Measured scan of single mutants.
Amino acid sequence: DTFTFTLDGIEVRLHGASEELIKTIEELLKRDIRWEELEKWIREWEK
Rank of each mutant, 00 (worst) to 15 (best):
D1M: 11
D1H: 14
D1L: 15
D1E: 13
D1F: 11
T2D: 15
T2N: 11
T2P: 12
F3I: 03
F3N: 00
F3E: 01
F3K: 01
F3S: 00
T4F: 11
T4P: 01
T4S: 12
T4L: 07
F5G: 03
F5H: 03
T6C: 15
T6Q: 11
T6A: 05
T6R: 02
T6H: 08
T6V: 15
T6P: 03
L7G: 01
L7Q: 02
L7Y: 12
L7C: 09
L7M: 05
D8F: 06
D8C: 05
D8Q: 03
D8P: 01
D8R: 00
D8T: 01
D8S: 02
G9Q: 04
G9V: 04
G9E: 06
G9W: 03
I10D: 02
I10F: 09
I10M: 09
I10T: 05
E11A: 03
E11F: 05
E11G: 01
E11V: 10
E11C: 07
V12M: 05
V12H: 12
V12F: 09
V12S: 00
R13H: 15
R13Y: 14
R13F: 12
R13T: 15
R13N: 15
R13P: 02
L14D: 00
L14E: 00
L14C: 04
H15F: 13
H15P: 08
H15Q: 10
H15N: 12
H15W: 07
G16R: 04
G16S: 05
G16C: 07
G16M: 07
A17W: 06
A17R: 02
A17H: 02
S18T: 14
S18E: 04
S18M: 03
S18V: 03
S18D: 08
S18H: 05
E19D: 12
E19M: 13
E19N: 12
E19S: 12
E19K: 13
E20T: 10
E20G: 09
E20S: 10
L21I: 11
L21K: 03
I22H: 02
I22K: 07
I22W: 03
I22V: 10
I22A: 03
I22Q: 06
K23I: 08
K23R: 13
K23G: 08
K23W: 06
K23N: 12
T24R: 14
T24P: 01
T24L: 15
T24N: 15
T24M: 14
T24S: 13
T24H: 11
T24F: 14
T24D: 10
T24G: 15
T24V: 12
I25K: 00
I25D: 00
E26N: 11
E26W: 07
E26P: 01
E26R: 10
E26C: 04
E26Y: 07
E26T: 13
E26S: 10
E26G: 08
E26M: 14
E26K: 15
E27F: 07
E27I: 08
E27Y: 07
E27N: 11
L28P: 00
L28E: 02
L29K: 02
L29P: 00
L29E: 00
L29R: 02
L29G: 01
K30C: 05
K30F: 08
K30D: 08
K30Q: 10
K30G: 05
K30L: 10
K30R: 13
K30I: 09
K30M: 09
R31H: 12
R31T: 15
R31W: 07
R31L: 12
R31C: 04
D32R: 05
D32K: 08
D32T: 10
D32I: 06
D32S: 10
D32L: 05
D32Y: 06
D32H: 09
I33D: 04
I33T: 06
I33N: 04
I33R: 03
R34E: 06
R34M: 07
R34Y: 05
R34S: 12
R34Q: 07
R34D: 06
W35N: 01
W35L: 12
W35G: 02
W35K: 04
W35H: 04
W35R: 03
E36S: 13
E36M: 09
E36H: 13
E36K: 09
E37Q: 11
E37M: 07
E37I: 06
E37T: 09
L38S: 00
L38K: 00
E39L: 14
E39Q: 13
E39F: 13
E39T: 08
K40C: 06
K40D: 07
K40I: 11
K40V: 11
W41K: 12
W41S: 07
W41V: 15
W41P: 01
I42R: 02
I42V: 07
I42E: 01
I42Q: 01
I42L: 15
I42N: 00
I42D: 01
R43C: 10
R43E: 10
R43D: 08
R43K: 13
R43S: 13
R43A: 09
E44Y: 09
E44M: 08
W45T: 04
W45Q: 11
E46K: 06
E46L: 15
E46V: 13
E46Y: 15
E46N: 12
K47T: 14
K47P: 11
